[in-house]
Design a protein around this nucleic acid. Structure first.
Lengths: 192, 192, 192, 192
DNA sequence: GATGAATGAGATTTCATTCAT
DNA sequence: AATGAATGAAATCTCATTCAT
């Protein structure tokens, strides 16, 4: 499938360095055919983004609407995001490197924001039910939380952090432990 | 100066979309002259990176070698990174978007790592002196910490987070409060 | 019908700028089907040309072989050509713009010439029977005559000349008055 | 010079069939250089048109503002146009085949019209001074006149009419004799 | 007859880089 | 140091044509 091929190629060479012909070759088709399905190279990238980001959003939303307490919801969100590295590393590579901060992405800003808003709501709910400290700015916290997760993915993408099964599991634990419990002694938190 | 012009152009259009002629025009010189000072377009980007990243590293190192307690050192690191947005937004834009995850930067991996290592050592020192919880993986924590900071920068770069003076100050406070104190009630921490 | 669709499309966008898919879409068929009926895009154009040009030639020939005096025959020829604009403007557009001078039409030169030859013979007959001035080169005159008519069509095609019913009728009158008035010994000529 | 090369190439192969590389090769430059001077292939064609059409317009205007009687002015206009074939056949080929009736030419409509207006004014002046028949529509007549001339050029371009020096001179004479003979009161007209 | 996915030659255009001046 | 004309590799995209279904 063309999108899968595109993800593999973008992951390997980066969007700008990938040629349309590379994608076509990887997909086993003539490059012209790509233009039957996509109007341009950029549209391919945007489609990759849209399809997968909306999946992410759905997963997050499912978590948000579950009956779990907010603390566990944050843990579940972390798990979804970090597990995606094990499951679809190329996709993560592309989402992290090419899409998330590209200047070309102005059209998708709303979709990006939606993910942060979900996290923010979970935090706010935790503040409302008394399990989270109310004085923290929930919006900023949602960005910090997401950033921490994404940086772990980045570390794996760049080969700077070990990414065995154990390490990934440990990372999940660390993120929640850290962000929810804090570094300082006082704030220890039970494993999720 | 050529590098300043390059930063402005890269910040606006992204590295790949910027033409050498754009940089030259912004710098008020003929594009041929750029090749007297830099061997290639990529060398310009790398120079931007090197000069500024090493400045960042120096600042972090100064903080690390101060006599402040680890908790305050983390706060100082956050302040340096986040204040840079107010001082040199274009530069931050470039560092965040183009450099930090670009495949072009394989040569600079060591320099990038150095920054994380500083953070990691601060955390480890805090664990050693008893102010930080020892069970947290310091390496992962350093990435998460940096990621949280970078995502705030990203939010400002993308125009998704308000970036007035007050908000930037508030963000500094939130990062440290959150990462050090945790979200949950038990772990409150005094303002730095 | 495919040819009609082709004429409409060629008239609107010009031959070279028209895609086979445009013609097919206009005809309401899949583009592949077009190749059951025509060997190539160019063959479509040539067929348009051949079918209509031969009709024109027939009409001219009918006029030539009528019993009318040469002067009236020229008027009838002008009327046929100019009226075609009212009846089939798209077709005229194509014939005028694409066909008459296209390098693609080298095979059809003979057919094109035939039309001029008819006009030339009418003129020669008029010179023979004394109604036209004998010193005029009949061959050149036939081209000038045809050119005058075609330029009126061009004016209409380009939207530079008013093309209401009255104006078209007036144009017929003017052409004959002008061109034949110059041919006839005395100058002025009665309306045809 | 690039424009000259373009004219030669367009004249030989037609605009759409000519590749940018053909023009560059004919001009003895790399094709990229063409884009220093022209934004696109179409701009090359438009420049060819504009530069030469405005020259034509100047020539016509000079004739119009001379002291010669209208009849002689028409003769001079015919001479300029027809002589251009001898002087710059490739240019005429391009102007006649590619430019004058191209759908791409919507921007230049005003410039085209200006030429016709000059002719029209000459005719009107002839009607005013009594040398031309007043009942003829001067505007239509200008189009017919120009069309007759252009068709002669077309005949030469297509190789359908003999174009030796003598024949060109003869054609000039015939056009005026024919078209002006019809305009003048009495019919016959002295050679110009 | 009819479809439209698939092909791939080939066209335009871009732009980093060179180098004579 | 400084210019910008010149180069040409390379990239994207188009579209006539084919052909399995």
């Amino acid at each position: 499938m063309i999108l899968d091929a595109a993800v593999r190629v973008f992951a390997t060479k980066g969007y700008h360095t990938s040629r349309v012909g590379d994608i076509a070759e990887e997909a086993g088709i003539a490059h012209g055919l790509l233009y039957h399905y996509f109007g341009s190279k950029e549209e391919v990238l945007q489609t990759v983004f849209r399809e997968n980001w909306s999946q992410l959003l759905e997963a997050f939303t499912r978590i948000e609407t579950s009956d779990d307490p907010p603390l566990e919801q944050l843990g579940a969100i972390a798990k979804v995001l970090l597990r995606s590295w094990r499951d679809q590393p190329d996709l993560v590579r592309v989402m992290v490197r090419e899409v998330a901060r590209s200047p070309q992405l102005h059209g998708q800003v709303d979709e990006i924001r939606a993910v942060f808003v979900v996290i923010q709501r979970v935090i706010e709910r935790g503040q409302a039910d008394g399990s989270f400290r109310p004085e923290v700015d929930a919006r900023l916290a949602s960005w910090i939380f997401y950033g921490g997760l994404e940086e772990l993915l980045t570390g794996w993408v760049l080969g700077q952090l070990p990414d065995g099964d154990q390490e990934v599991a440990r990372a999940e634990q660390t993120v929640v432990d850290l962000l929810c419990g804090g570094l300082t002694r006082a704030g220890a938190v039970a494993p999720v």
